[in-house]
Design a protein around this nucleic acid. Structure first.
Lengths: 190, 190
DNA sequence: CCGCGAACCTAACAAACGTTAGGTAGGTGC
DNA sequence: GCACCTACCTAACGTTTGTTAGGTTCGCGG
């Protein structure tokens, strides 16, 4: 049911997604949703929360796996790969969060913002680590550029296309670190 | 009236924006809208079209102004500045387009797509010009990265903050061309 | 002064929305 | 066999939505 809600969110946004549609998707009636959630808002708070949860979990796993890694760019690329994985490989929760969060009403958003802040803070810390020479005032801007590149992929990237998620992660990381000129030098696109 | 519609679109998305709200914003009643447009869809097709129109016009003006420019990076930066200008300085049409386009129903979107394609094609041509050494298969991806960086600024950039639009355009261009390391070298942030 | 069209209003319409109260089927524990 | 809980349904509620038909106001041309 949460899955169905997330998929509808991705395709239609908050207001256009009706409880009757979600109910029909999973073969029940709209009223029955209220046995599991107190309201529409309550349901979607759960969906958005899981969207962040998936991202945070993926980030945490990579943090551990890459603990003793000597190459800073490899570490960054692994985290980029984890973020893309959250967007494309773990259901629609993260995709729903990224695309539909700003279409949700203010009260709902403010309940989620603390979780978002936590995730953003982890990325700031990672970038400060990977890019120690970067002016700390520029760091949030660099993160926003990176987020922009990663999150807009849901509008165009095709999992079944020629480019793999590993390739995409590498492309984004290299482009982010070295600029567009380095795009030709990337290791593998398969 | 189109202005009011665009602003509501930015704040609320397609479905959540009601004709009664728009009418109230400009001091008329909802039914009166139908004297100017055939339907809600018709009204928002006009809004989205103007959003692209503003972008295309800004792009075209820069194309002429930068005709005899020797520095390719200056040319690119001027176009980035024009795109950001369309987003922040020429009403809410472009901002509405970028934020709410994917929240609109399919039929409406397909009426707009040809205009979008035209704008994207202009950018592809520009990038092919500015970056002749870039593998042509990578060119659309590079453009998508750049669009991602530019368009997500509406979620965080503040016109009245310390960073000017000129500074932001320079930041994005340098970051795009040379990578994040070059962020410290940018010319001016005022 | 008359006619006419543009701009707007009033009042309602059917449809769809989130939500709720009350009821039913099936399983579990005692 | 009885009580109870979970999961679901039915049927409606009040509200809001896009939309429409018919009427009013106002200014301009002849």
């Amino acid at each position: 049911m949460l899955d169905a809600a997330a998929e509808r969110l991705v395709a239609q946004g908050y207001t256009a997604t009706t409880l009757r549609e979600i109910a029909a998707d999973i073969g029940i009636k709209a009223g029955s949703i209220y046995h599991h959630f107190e309201s529409k808002e309550d349901l979607f708070i759960e969906v958005f929360s899981r969207g962040i949860e998936v991202m945070v979990d993926a980030f945490g796993e990579v943090d551990i796996a890459m603990n003793g890694c000597d190459s800073e760019s490899d570490r960054l690329e692994a985290h980029v790969r984890a973020h893309l994985g959250a967007l494309f490989e773990h259901g629609s929760f993260t995709a729903a969060h990224v695309t539909a969060f700003f279409t949700a009403p203010e009260e709902l958003r403010s309940a989620i913002v603390p979780l978002r802040d936590d995730y953003e803070h982890r990325w700031n810390a990672l970038l400060a680590d990977v890019l120690p020479e970067l002016d700390s005032a520029r760091l949030p801007i660099a993160r926003l550029f990176l987020f922009g590149a990663m999150n807009t992929t849901i509008e165009w990237f095709d999992l079944s296309g020629d480019l793999s998620l590993d390739g995409l992660a590498n492309l984004i990381t290299v482009q982010f670190l070295e600029g567009v000129h380095a795009l030709n030098l990337q290791r593998s696109t398969r």
